[in-house]
Write a protein that binds this DNA or RNA. Structure first.
Lengths: 207, 207
DNA sequence: CGGTGCTCTAAGCAACCGCTCACCTTCGGC
DNA sequence: GCCGAAGGTGAGCGGTTGCTTAGAGCACCG
């Protein structure tokens, strides 16, 4: 009833690695609740209720409410890093790889908006240790994109004034998709991905 | 060139219009607390404490905690709209006006990051009525930027495939500055503004 | 001087929060 | 048939939340 499946956007079975079935149901429920109301506004009773369980059941599988957010954040960031890494290391020119990286990264943020929203916007709700761990993953995402841009500049394909700043802007553009996408928007994730790939190629000065 | 009231990293006095002095102190305290911890994680006791008052004093000037967020959001959005409107309606070519709009809009998000963060990211914490009012202001922001881009296309200065999508991307890029700026970044608001103005001109295909 | 309105405080209420505990059910192995 | 582990529940604890109430201090005004 709440937020229908995002199968339309292409989210497959992203939480298959969460092994006890009840633990996965709780985690999926937490993703939905966090995305809708935010971490602090979500109660453990709400999460357990969405998973069809009593409030106490949550604490059999997770030590605290924050551990749920931590798990969601880590798995999500690993998925995001995997997407960028795959695009960065395939065959092709820097232009092709950058376009691939941006379009698939944007598709993930648009199609799995529920997940992406939690992953990208609830970072500050984590404690210092968990936060530092996630930030390390985020720096790796940054490095993958910067690598493509640097190669494009070295190959003479790109014309960029500030590599670091442009990298940050490209990632920022993609990430913010999770904030605005599909509040009854007229675009599919594929369309936004294609549009954004074009815009980013313009940003790096592809002739 | 720049409105010099924005000192580096510091807050200006944009809240001069909030008339009883105690009410303004409470509102400024709320902006800081909401930006640091988020709306739901902020307690009314924390807000009152920052303003040097007892918890009950808050309710003399504001009916609820949500009314504080509403006031902050409305004033902030009006300021943002004012910035875009000023840039859009000044003299100059579409390229010049777009660059001006982007750089000043970005400067506001970077320099007044505390305020901008609350304004842009705590919208969902408002009730339906207040939320609808703010969304109307946001659509006006969108219309100002789209207007500049449409004029640039009509004048043959810009080469844009999807005006609506590009407008959204430009605003998204600027808004997301409030999320990442100054987490020990090496840039000043002016530098980010200049970089982003260049990137946006590339996005709209200025020759 | 007594009243009047405004600002602020100390104390506290009802509700809700994250989380725990004693206890119940199910089920495979022997 | 018995047992211990694993997964689940209802009840509830201590603490915190947004907000209220009774009343104190204080300028102003007839």
């Amino acid at each position: 009833m709440t937020t229908a499946e995002e199968t339309a956007g292409g989210e497959k079975q992203p939480w298959a690695e969460v092994t006890p079935d009840a633990a996965r149901r709780l985690l999926v429920a937490a993703v939905e609740a966090f995305a809708e109301r935010g971490y602090h506004a979500t109660t453990t009773r709400d999460i357990a209720g969405r998973a069809g369980m009593s409030p106490a059941a949550l604490y059999i599988h997770y030590k605290t409410k924050e551990e749920l957010l931590h798990r969601i954040s880590r798995i999500g960031h690993e998925k995001a890093l995997d997407i960028l890494r795959t695009a960065a290391r395939r065959d092709g020119t820097p232009s092709e790889r950058l376009a691939d990286a941006v379009s698939s990264f944007v598709r993930w943020h648009a199609g799995g908006r529920t997940t992406a929203r939690v992953v990208q916007y609830e970072l500050d709700s984590l404690g210092p240790d968990a936060r530092a761990e996630i930030l390390a993953l985020r720096r790796q995402c940054d490095a993958e994109v910067r690598g493509i841009i640097e190669e494009g500049v070295a190959a003479g394909e790109f014309d960029v004034l500030d590599v670091k700043g442009t990298t940050l802007a490209v990632l920022s553009l993609c990430i913010d998709v999770a904030r605005w996408f599909n509040v009854d928007g007229p675009w599919t994730p594929d369309e936004v991905g294609a549009l954004y790939a074009d815009l980013v190629l313009r940003m790096v000065g592809v002739k």
